[in-house]
Design a protein around this nucleic acid. Structure first.
Length: 574
DNA sequence: GCCGTTTTCGGCCCGACTGTTTTCAGTCG
């Protein structure tokens, strides 16, 4: 395979932008954008789909785009892509990443001022060379400069917990204003995306101007981007944008639906409404000019003949279709469903909390079992345990298990998968653990085929319970190492093994887009915090969000099972 | 370019805010 689905998706998205810059038919542009999204969220192996000539069966992939994808997957390039790229100067692509500069303005700047990069644009603005251009003015010059500054400053992806923290702060600030009827954090935070670009807040109130003022005057605001009667947008000192929308309380359910998104989900929902000769926007669901009263989001879905769609699922990746045919997953997993968890470190290796402290926190969280999995001997950077220290830890765990009641500490290891796919402990030692998590921590630069074989060999070891953080990605700093997750899931299915969903917000690994496939193969997913401290255990909550996003129900998640069932499972594959 | 419980052709979601304009295009979500 020359390109995987993420690379293909990236090219399709780039093609959409290139088309936009070529003044193409807007619907053609949308078709490419849509295809990029659909491929990214595909719950099957793209290469397998291409080989089976089943691309055309995917909704949104037609004649032309299927050829482009096939070429990209098989040859790593595409004629259409190259010819499109040839027509457009790369500087234009760079310029439209500036807030406030779109394709139209980028093209004017290119044609009339021969500007070919963000750096050149910055210079031109500083020299007041832009204001005289038709359609531009003094304000535009300043805004472009600010946009460039922002681009330099916060290019990075905002981790979910940080954005949530900032959003909660704004929420409590706004709640001090007595005129709020309902308030909700919306947008990608509500959809629990693995990382977010901005904060969206929705308020219902009869005094919108007061709320707007409270928002723009908030002490965390660095500068105001837009300040209207119902909608405002600011840049926070914390380095992210926040948008606020204020509506009447009657409008709140429709506005919440709209403001939660995703954009693509909204577009599809509006089409569904239109099919029923209704109109959906943020102010209501209308029959003619009459608003159909809905108290909450549930009622809106119901009126459209749909089951309620949980916010996490609203990505237009099949959820609306499923809601129409009553095939949505029932009972997405909740934090309170978790009975225990695996993959936790202590001071024995690179954790900062002792065994006792970790257990105490787990008990406080209402868990019934806790898997301890310190690093294995090769992980010298993390104080990995040699066999004698493993034995010593066993004794400590035995001792503590005798002392505590209604709680079980499980003996485990996060054992390194060595470059050849063998494990960092002998089988004789591995057999003594209650569970084994096998992870890759070294030699990331293998080919996809080699890496996949390496990890599959580990799955085949009869003492291995699951694979830890299967792609090794770190958000935002490290890309996943090349690996075929579909083959991994298949191997796990064949051998009765589980897959980890690492709940650490820097990992979220496996990704929610692959968990649907794991579910289809009946591979149990284990939500693990990979905790290196007592606070780290709380990351489970974030992991649950990602699991829900991946359509996982209580029954799909390994650690919703009782201690007794877990012990049975741990024997089942050996 | 894609798609079909009105369609294989003719549609394709809808609205807010800004800045440069005198009625609207561009951008964004």
């Amino acid at each position: 395979m020359k390109m995987d689905k993420n690379e293909v998706s990236k090219i399709l998205r780039e093609m959409a932008i290139l088309l936009e810059l070529s003044d193409a038919n807007p619907f053609k542009i949308r078709a490419f954008e849509n295809a990029a999204r659909v491929i990214e969220g595909l719950d099957q192996d793209l290469e397998a789909v291409v080989n089976a000539k089943k691309l055309r069966e995917i909704k949104g992939i037609g004649e032309t785009i299927s050829h482009v994808i096939t070429d990209l997957v098989q040859t790593g390039s595409s004629k259409e892509y190259l010819s499109l790229k040839k027509k457009i100067h790369p500087g234009l692509l760079e310029m439209i990443s500036i807030q406030g500069v779109g394709p139209k303005r980028a093209k004017i700047l290119f044609k009339k001022r021969h500007i070919k990069s963000v750096a050149e644009l910055e210079k031109a603005c500083q020299q007041h060379n832009i204001a005289k251009l038709e359609g531009f003015g003094e304000k535009s010059e300043l805004n472009i400069l600010k946009g460039i500054e922002d681009l330099k400053k916060h290019k990075e992806i905002i981790p979910y917990p940080l954005a949530l923290y900032e959003a909660e702060k704004i929420k409590s600030h706004l709640l001090k204003s007595a005129d709020i009827e309902r308030i909700e954090i919306a947008g990608s935070l509500r959809r629990r995306k693995e990382f977010v670009k901005d904060i969206d807040l929705l308020v219902s109130s009869s005094k919108p101007e007061k709320i707007m003022k409270a928002f723009t005057k908030y002490s965390g605001v660095e500068r105001i981007l837009a300040d209207g009667e119902t909608k405002s947008s600011v840049v926070l000192k914390a380095g992210m944008n926040a948008d606020l929308r204020v509506v009447s309380d009657k409008e709140f359910p429709y506005a919440l639906l709209y403001f939660t998104g995703s954009k693509e989900h909204n577009t599809e929902m509006r089409s569904i409404a239109k099919l029923r000769h209704l109109k959906l926007n943020e102010y209501g669901l209308f029959k003619g000019t009459k608003r159909i009263p809905c108290k909450n989001e549930e009622a809106v879905f119901k009126t459209l003949g749909l089951e309620f769609i949980e916010p996490e699922l609203r990505e237009n990746l099949g959820e609306i279709e499923a809601a129409g045919s009553k095939k949505l997953p029932k009972g997405l997993v909740e934090l309170t469903d978790l009975r225990g968890t695996f993959h936790n470190h202590t001071t024995e290796s690179d954790g900062v909390a002792t065994l006792e402290q970790m257990v105490a926190r787990a008990q406080k969280m209402g868990l019934e079992y806790l898997g301890i999995s310190d690093h294995s001997q090769s992980a010298y950077y993390a104080k990995g345990l040699k066999p004698d220290r493993v034995k010593k830890q066993f004794k400590e765990i035995d001792k503590l298990n005798e002392k505590i009641h209604n709680f079980k500490i499980l003996k485990g290891s996060e054992v390194d998968i060595l470059p050849d796919g063998s494990l960092d402990f002998e089988d004789s030692l591995l057999s003594e653990f209650d569970f084994v998590i096998a992870s890759v921590h070294s030699k990331f630069n293998m080919s996809e085929k080699e890496m996949t074989q390496r990890v599959i060999r580990a799955i085949k070891n009869k003492y291995v319970t699951m694979i830890g953080h299967p792609t090794g990605r770190l958000i935002p700093s490290r890309e996943p190492y090349p690996i075929n997750l579909y083959e991994l899931v298949d191997a796990a299915a064949d051998h009765g093994k589980a897959m980890e969903l690492n709940a650490n917000p820097h990992r979220f690994d496996i990704d929610w887009k692959i968990s649907k496939y794991a579910k289809s193969k009946k591979v149990a997913v284990s939500i693990n915090p990979d905790a290196h401290s007592t606070e780290g255990l709380e990351d489970l909550a974030y992991g649950v969000g990602i699991a829900r996003k991946g359509w996982l129900t209580k029954g799909d998640v390994l650690n919703t099972r009782s201690t007794e069932e877990i012990l049975k499972f741990l024997k089942s594959y050996k």
